[in-house]
Design a protein around this nucleic acid. Structure first.
Length: 210
DNA sequence: CCGACGATTTCCT
DNA sequence: GGAAATCGTCGGT
């Protein structure tokens, strides 16, 4: 069952779970004035809409998540923890929210440039985590809303991959509450660039007693 | 190896 | 006001 290895928008307009599977093994490529870096995706996570408490779209559209309600194939990029960018692929028909978070991958092009963006990191760790991946690719909020299926975009999806032989589904990383147990994280089995699983960790608020 | 914690800012309630 | 789809560092075992 060979699969076409080029993208059509309808390939991604299939909801977050199916889109997550379609994106595994595929390549994201970023071009800046410094050059081009490409990453082969080894780990992604699905996020839904009003029925998914773990999703940014759970409470409807707002300033940050507006792109999630756009057409499939757009990049939804958000800023979190005061310092990190995360990159998603929008994966539902226009007006319906849903996205796939790109969590980890392997650098397959532009290794020298990637290394300069992540000083001190091992090659294995260059894109091993959602914020590491955006740093390695040079992705920031400027890429929010970019069409990933346009070959002329600075950030784009290039090759699809054959259906992975073996994938592993599990709970999403860092998602608290009801959405925390939904097994919508998926990665290539046995791949060393997959990030380490961590449950959501509530942080202790500072007390008057130190 | 492992768990704890601080950094730092945006967004929503 | 508080939580957040994280990461690097630090200290202990």
């Amino acid at each position: 069952m060979g699969r076409r290895l080029t993208w059509r928008r309808t390939d991604l307009s299939v909801g977050p779970v199916d889109a997550a599977l379609a994106l595994l093994g595929a390549t994201v490529e970023s071009t800046t004035e410094d050059g081009t870096v490409a990453v082969r995706l080894t780990e992604v996570e699905a996020y839904g809409g009003s029925d998914d408490p773990g999703s940014h779209a759970f409470r409807g559209p707002g300033r940050r998540n507006a792109t999630m309600f756009g057409p499939a194939g757009l990049a939804y990029v958000y800023f979190t923890y005061g310092m990190h960018w995360c990159l998603n692929v929008v994966c539902c028909p226009d007006g319906e929210p849903g996205a796939v978070l790109l969590r980890a991958g392997e650098v397959t092009r532009g290794l020298d440039l990637a290394r300069t963006r992540r000083p001190g990191a091992s090659d294995r760790d260059l894109a091993r985590g959602p914020a590491r991946l955006t740093r390695t690719l040079g992705v920031t909020g400027a890429a929010d809303g970019v069409d990933l299926l346009d070959a002329g975009s600075p950030l784009r999806l290039t090759a699809r991959a054959p259906t992975p032989a073996e994938v592993v589904w599990g709970p999403r990383v860092g998602v608290a509450g009801e959405g925390g147990s939904t097994p919508w994280r998926v990665h290539l089995a046995g791949d060393r660039t997959v990030s380490v699983y961590r449950p959501a960790t509530p942080r202790r608020k500072p007390t008057a007693f130190g």
